[in-house]
Amino acid sequence: MKKNSILLSAYFLLILLVFPQSAYAMHIAEGFLPVKWAGLWVIVTAPFLVVGLRSIRGSIKEKPDLKMLLGLVGAFAFILSALKIPSLTGSCSHPTGVGLGAVLFGPAAMSVLGCIVLIFQALFLAHGGITTLGANTFSMAVVGPFVAYGVYKALQKMSAPHWLSVFLAAALGDLLTYVTTSLQLALAFPDAVGGVAASFVKFAGVFAITQIPLAISEGLLTVLVFNLLVSYSRQELYDLSVLKKEV
């Protein structure tokens, strides 16, 4: 029994030592997934990118200026992910920008831009990877934005308070990204004893330590950003809703 408690405390010590410095959104590291799973996620993600590119191409034909805007929005999303959200414990977490981007620019554009941002994160920050790009794009640039956008639109339709829909869109977008990544890991590495379900519980449980606080703090932050935008930059938001219809 004593040995067990030592092991348990060693395990949590490891987590505490490894995690607190900075909690990024959860990206699967380069080379982590077996070849066939990496390939599968590329195939699953590809249609979303094709549709996203097609819709962007269509709107650029009408409005060539949109390309500049999308380029800057991509850079904006990358910079967001490099910022630090202050937190109580002295550690810092990084926003994903998934919720903000999806609400401002719509999920179709975000799938393409998200994929580009992930490539830059892999190359510039060694965060994520090229072989795991398919899996990471699916969780962060497809599932996240679509959930965030869906939640936002649904809550707005139910005439929920604006801050609540923004908060839930950002927080749920983050949470589902993390759940998707855990599922991807669980499918690739099913628990030898308990199968995929047990493995999912393991991965989701371990990464919950960073990802649930991240979802909440990003939700709060997005609400604050939106409040500022609504009070000081109404015109910009109004202009963007034109963009949202088109992209």
Binding site: L14, V18, V193, A198, K202
Partner: peptide
């Protein structure tokens, strides 16, 4: 990510 991910793969829960 790597250490935590790998530790999670190594440990079985059932």
């Amino acid at each position: 990510f790597l250490l935590v991910g790998v530790a999670t793969v190594a440990v079985s829960v059932s």
